[in-house]
Simulated scan of single mutants.
Amino acid sequence: MRPALARSCRGLAFVVPPAVHGGAEARNASERFWGCPVVTVHDSEEATDWVRERLALQQEGSL
Rank of each mutant, 00 (worst) to 15 (best):
A47C: 02
D43E: 15
G61C: 00
V38T: 07
A13F: 01
W34C: 14
R54V: 12
F14S: 10
Q59W: 12
Q59P: 00
W34L: 12
R2C: 06
G35V: 01
V51K: 05
S62W: 09
G22Y: 05
P3F: 03
R32F: 08
Q59G: 05
V41D: 04
A56H: 04
E31V: 07
Q58Y: 13
H21W: 13
S44K: 11
E60S: 14
H21N: 15
R27C: 02
A47N: 00
F14H: 05
V39Q: 12
F14M: 13
T48D: 13
V16I: 10
G22N: 14
G23I: 04
E31F: 01
R32Y: 06
A56D: 13
R2Y: 07
A56L: 05
L55Q: 01
V41S: 02
L57M: 09
L12H: 04
Q59I: 00
F33I: 08
W34D: 06
R32A: 15
R54L: 06
S30H: 09
S30R: 14
V39L: 11
S8E: 12
W50H: 06
P37N: 05
L5A: 04
E46N: 12
C9S: 03
D43L: 07
G61F: 03
E46M: 13
T48N: 11
V39K: 11
V16D: 12
P17W: 15
D43C: 04
G23L: 10
E31C: 10
C9L: 00
N28L: 13
V16S: 10
W34M: 11
S8Q: 09
V41H: 05
A4F: 12
W34G: 13
L57R: 09
P17F: 15
W50D: 07
